[in-house]
Nucleic acid binder design. Structure first.
Length: 1129
RNA sequence: GCGCGCAUAGCUCAGUUGGUUAGAGCGCAGCCCUGAUAAGGCUGAGGUCCCAAGUUCGACUCUUGGUGCGCGCACCA
């Protein structure tokens, strides 16, 4: 038998109990074991590793909730969905966090502190945060194997990454080049974009307009503009937009200038003299023209150097006009000075130019600045000067050489070092390791095209665009806590090798330096083995160079971008290919992943890029890199919107615009939070954290379902409806087929219409939810589930109450129990992926306790319900909906007539728009009568006295047929007599109209009839019907109304007096008018029955405090006294 | 600045190939139930669907251009 149910449940406490139950019985494990045995195929999920740095906030709960939902759902659908957790542990954020602890900043300070203790601290810091995340993960009900998590700093993981890098290296895809970084010259370090972003300030820089004379036409000059004069000595090109118009203008002194036509007037204004246009040309006409740069430090030796182009022919390597799309005419001159060493965009221009030449023949990077921010010897007189300080002298020199056309102040935002406020950052080239991803752009796009993105626009929008503009992946980082780049270089010859594992390294000839790790291990016995593949230990390992006898191979100093770590996760989580080959084969690619939008350029990209390069179609990347058909490594990706704080701002701890997850769990519970995430919006819309909305998700589903469940258990216990007795033998999941074996269980066809209706709704809902969830549409699925629970609670249970209350154990009553039982069980299963805790609680009582433990132990071991088409009765659904609509319209009519439902009315007339369900409705008039408290219900199709008709064209049908004649037809229909049209339609099955001088024939399907209540009637109209109330009140009706009002008031009084449900009372009424007293006397049987009154007298009761009440216009005194209290009450 | 997205009721958000009367929840107002009861239900008020132009017989929906907001990339010669 079921256990008694609390009326006022504490969901958080319940959830804690469920968590304990899952833990003690290993339910997650067993749910997997079950599917493993069934062997219906896999559903592969990848956990995008959270950065184990910083504490989780509600936004992370959303990600983790979605990541739980679909694997749970698919598991219940029979798929084996293994879920391996993972942690992203490397990277700058961890280093910054440790630096904060240590109160240090720069790389020098880290070195001074010691790399070894520093990375020990990094590793420990990561562990602390991982534990916080694990707690959250469990409490949210996110089922994932935390104790088998992959961790990016583990040796096996690092070695997988090494393997992949070696693969790329040996295919020539890993190379060294320059990367333009934001460089803090004084500190000698590059800054991350996050750090740069913090340091922007508005400053006024000098801006100069400089002449660059054309080589073959020295009287004509390009005019370039720059706000960084110190980059001019390193000039390599001038860029123009090929599509823009450029003007050749004549200056006052007769010389000629070239600049964008749109900016001539502006420049003339600045110069305060006219510039006369002499010619107009397109940017593309300028491309290839050579010019003389402002400084000749490089020009004097290289001006005539030419290189061979790939497509044949020769070209000068530098100081010519090149085309570039980024050139605009917003500021400057439309001719852009290019110093590729000091701008990322400029650098890309250089790369593009280099690519046009045969290898080794194109332009080399020119850089007249040293890493400390001073000019090199190449910059002649400026050598040793800090570049920003040299600006003024550079300008002076330009002026004296008559190259300076104009100078002014330019106010703009410019980044400074966030730690040394006076130090401006400069863009600066650094040697860096790259992966040749741009070479695989087409393959990445082809792979991307096959991925199912939700929302769809990510594919060709944000993500697709990003791939289109792909540049080679700058892989290396000059940092400490990260996967070491597995590249060893010969100290003599520069010969380079990549190493694919630690063992491979140890097998190299004459390995030295392993003792550094041994000693560290001896010093700190607790040191995790994994650290031996990290800095500084790995740096110590050298081996004999195969190219230079007696010389050593030494590792480069860099570590790699931690995004590469995460992107390698599909294979590295298994340690592939050094181990886990089988696991990888089973679990690649993923069917489903999900992260927030900010991962577009992060994990979504890193995965796709690595997977395409290693396993792409036609890649033939070696024996351990099997070619796989697209898409991979994931087939479907839900891109979640970002979550904002309560105030619509970014969530931030200091602003306190959200609540800590743990507090949410304690107040409302994980199910409430989950339901709020799943049911309130499609997952990709950006979502605003709302405490109120979380609170509201409790009554919307959780409490409503709980109430139905509680109702069921209360009456099942009273009536002794006990599945344990009624169901013999072994039970599994209490599926419909199993329930059908139950004693007293009757086939659907024999049950009442209401039962058939709710079961039809149940199966319709099941079909809809599975269809939607298969399409990853949790939002619609949730609304269907909520709608069903609403129908169950507010129509089925309400209309069935007296069946449960009736005294005898009729077959109909047992039907009601079986029906409600089945509805509850199925609903729980349907809801289980969404609200796993509540579902489990209900299952524990309804199924496990209810059958004395003969079912499966947990709802999460059950299969997801499947809709039985035979149980679905669409017509009945429509019919019941119609009744509910009519009841609603009737109440609306009552409200407008100010006739409360307690006042009985003689009759209601229902005019139907569509006669199809008329007969059925006539048979069910009783329901309408009860719901509306009327004596009789009459149905009509035509009732011209109450209703006006409008005949409207069916635009969807007629639009294509009639086109422009549609408005004329509309008018013709509107001006015609609707009643006559209907009559014609009924007689001939068609109507003939003249519109625009042409005759149009309309069939029944071409029009819609709409009806509306005529004014003056108490009526309400909707699309399906008009409901007209008779408002005439007879003395009998009024008397009955009084009686019902009185019952209501006595009930209130009982409650005030603290009566138990079963207490009997005595009622006295005084000061009633004669008519009132007589009417109440007449209904005294009804009144006493409803209020459990043993006596009802028309007089005061001694010693009882009366209350003044009013019935209609009348007032009287009500006396209520407790008469008897039955035993046990 | 460039790219992507969003803009619908007081608030938070739906709106499914363009079709006649644009929905929900919360909040608000009124009412009902009182044997699921510190719950529950019903009804109602409330909208220039951001603006403008275009396509169309017809636009909340499609196109273009604005405006505002969010995010990403940059910070610009």
């Amino acid at each position: 038998m079921f256990e008694a149910v609390e009326g006022n449940p504490s969901f958080p406490a319940m959830e804690e109990a469920v968590l304990r139950f899952w833990g003690q019985h290993g339910i997650f494990e067993r749910s997997l074991e079950r599917r493993r045995q069934r062997n219906r195929g896999r559903f592969v999920f990848y956990e995008g590793p959270p950065t184990a740095n910083g504490l989780p906030h509600p936004g992370h709960c959303l990600t983790r909730a979605i990541k739980d939902l679909f694997p749970r759902y698919r598991s219940m659908r029979g798929y084996l969905c293994e879920r391996k957790a993972g942690w992203d542990t490397h990277g700058l954020p961890v280093e910054v966090e440790v630096c904060k602890e240590l109160g240090i900043h720069s790389k020098q300070e880290i070195e001074a502190y010691g790399v070894e203790p520093f990375i020990h601290r990094c590793q420990q810091s990561v562990w602390r945060y991982m534990q916080e995340w694990e707690r959250l993960t469990e409490r949210l009900g996110f089922w994932i194997h935390l104790d088998e998590a992959y961790v990016t700093y583990h040796q096996s993981y690092v070695e997988s990454v090494w393997w992949s890098l070696k693969n790329l290296f040996e295919r020539g895809l890993l190379y060294q080049g320059y990367k333009i970084v934001w460089w803090w010259a004084q500190g000698g370090t590059a800054l991350s974009s996050g750090e740069v972003g913090q340091g922007y300030r508005q400053v006024a820089d000098p801006s100069v307009y400089v002449r660059c004379p054309l080589v073959d036409e020295p009287q004509t000059s390009l005019v370039v503009w720059t706000t960084t004069p110190w980059t001019l000595p390193s000039n390599q090109f001038a860029a123009v937009h090929p599509e823009l118009p450029y003007a050749v203008v004549e200056d006052a002194d007769g010389s000629r200038l070239i600049l964008a036509a749109a900016l001539v007037e502006q420049l003339a204004g600045k110069l305060q003299r006219p510039l006369v246009q002499r010619a107009l040309l397109r940017g593309s006409d300028l491309v290839g023209r050579r010019y003389v740069p402002p400084f000749d430090y490089y020009y004097r030796s290289l001006s005539n150097r030419q290189g061979r182009l790939r497509e044949g022919g020769l070209e000068h390597v530098a100081w010519r006009v090149v085309p570039a799309d980024f050139v605009t005419v917003d500021t400057g001159t439309g001719v852009v000075h290019q110093a590729p060493a000091f701008g990322e965009v400029d650098f890309e221009v250089l790369l593009r130019e280099q690519a046009r030449f045969l290898p080794g023949e194109g332009p080399e990077l020119i850089c007249a600045v040293a890493p400390d921010g001073t000019f090199t010897a190449e910059a002649g007189p400026y050598q040793g000067r800090w570049v920003k300080d040299a600006d003024r002298d550079i300008i002076r020199e330009l002026r004296s050489r008559r190259l300076l056309l104009h100078q002014e102040q330019y106010v703009h935002d410019y980044p400074f070092c966030w730690r040394a406020e006076e130090d401006p950052l400069i863009q600066y080239p650094r040697r860096s390791w790259f992966i040749r991803t741009s070479q695989f752009k087409q393959q990445m796009l082809a792979n991307n095209a096959r991925i199912q993105w939700l929302p769809e626009h990510i594919r060709d929008g944000r993500f697709g665009n990003f791939l289109e503009t792909n540049v080679d992946w700058a892989l290396s980082r000059e940092r400490y806590w990260g996967t070491p780049l597995p590249i060893w270089v010969c100290e003599e010859t520069g010969y380079v090798e990549a190493v694919g594992s630690y063992a491979e390294l140890l097998a190299k000839p004459d390995v030295q330096g392993t003792e550094v790790w041994q000693q560290a291990k001896a010093r700190y016995p607790d040191l995790p083995e994994d650290l031996k593949v990290h800095k500084p230990y790995i740096d110590a390992i050298t081996y004999a160079s195969p190219r230079a006898p007696g010389k050593r191979m030494r590792r480069v100093s860099e570590v790699i971008d931690c995004w590469y770590d995460s992107g390698a996760m599909p294979f590295a989580q298994w340690g592939y290919p050094h181990q886990g080959r089988e696991r990888f084969a089973q679990q690649f690619p993923a069917d489903f992943i999900s992260e927030a939008l900010d991962q577009t350029r992060g994990w979504f990209y890193s995965q796709l890029a690595i997977s395409t390069l290693l396993f792409g179609e036609g890649m033939a990347a070696g024996p351990d890199a099997p070619e796989a058909p697209y898409p991979h490594p994931f087939r479907t990706c839900i891109v979640l919107g970002l979550m904002l704080g309560e105030d619509g701002q970014k969530m931030s701890k200091s602003r306190r615009n959200y609540r800590e997850p743990q507090e949410i769990f304690d107040r409302y519970g994980a199910d409430a939070l989950r339901w709020y995430f799943f049911a309130n919006q499609p997952p990709w819309t950006s979502i605003r954290y709302s405490e109120q909305a979380i609170r509201d998700s409790i009554p919307e589903l959780l409490l409503r379902l709980w109430n139905v469940y509680s109702f069921f258990v209360i009456y099942a216990r009273i009536d002794g409806f006990d599945p344990a007795e009624r169901l013999a033998g072994q039970l599994e999941q209490l599926s419909p087929a199993e329930l059908a074996r139950g004693a007293g269980y009757r086939p659907l066809a024999q049950r009442s219409e209401l039962d058939r209706w709710i079961l039809s709704e149940l199966h319709r809902t099941t079909a809809a939810i599975t269809e939607r969830m298969d399409a990853y549409d949790n939002y619609t699925a949730c609304s269907r589930l909520a709608a069903f629970v609403d129908a169950l609670s507010n129509w089925y249970v309400r209309r069935s109450r007296d069946r449960f209350w009736s005294g005898e154990q009729s077959a109909d009553k047992i039907d009601a129990y079986w029906t409600l039982y089945e509805c509850l069980l199925t609903t729980c299963k349907l809801a289980a992926p969404f609200v796993p805790f509540l579902s489990e609680s209900l299952w524990q009582n309804l199924a496990v306790a209810g059958t004395a433990g003969r079912t499966v132990e947990s709802i999460h071991l059950c299969d997801y319900p499947e809709a039985d088409p035979a149980a679905i009765d669409e017509v009945l659904s429509q019919q019941m909906q119609l009744v509910r609509d009519i009841a609603s319209l009737g109440r609306s009519a009552r409200t407008s007539a100010r006739l409360k439902v307690r006042q009985p009315l003689a009759r209601v007339e229902v005019v139907l728009a569509d006669p199809r369900h008329r007969a059925w409705l006539e048979a069910h008039a009783q329901i309408v009568a009860e719901e509306l408290n009327v004596k009789t219900v009459e149905l009509a199709e035509r009732a011209d006295q109450y209703v006006t008709y409008t005949v409207l064209p069916d635009l969807k049908r007629l639009g294509p047929r009639l086109g422009k004649r549609l408005p004329a037809l509309k008018n013709a229909l509107a001006s015609a007599d609707a009643a006559a049209l209907l009559a014609e339609l009924e007689q001939h099955g068609r109507i003939l109209l003249t519109a625009d001088g042409q005759q149009i024939e309309l069939g029944k399907e071409d029009v819609q009839v709409r009806l509306a209540a005529k004014p003056g009637w108490t009526a309400a109209h909707g699309p399906s019907a008009v409901v007209v109330l008779s408002t005439d009140l007879t003395p009998e009706l009024i008397g009955e109304g009084w009686a019902r009002d009185l019952v209501h008031l006595i009930q209130s009084r009982r409650k005030e007096l603290g009566c138990a449900y079963t207490d009997r009372i005595a009622v006295g009424l005084a000061d009633a008018s004669p008519q009132l007293a007589e009417a109440l006397q007449q209904h005294s049987g009804y009144i006493r029955r409803e209020t459990l009154a043993v006596e009802l007298k028309m007089q005061a009761i001694e010693g009882v405090e009366p209350v003044e009440i009013s019935l209609g216009e009348e007032t009287l005194r009500l006396y209520v006294r407790l008469a008897e209290r039955p035993d046990g009450a």
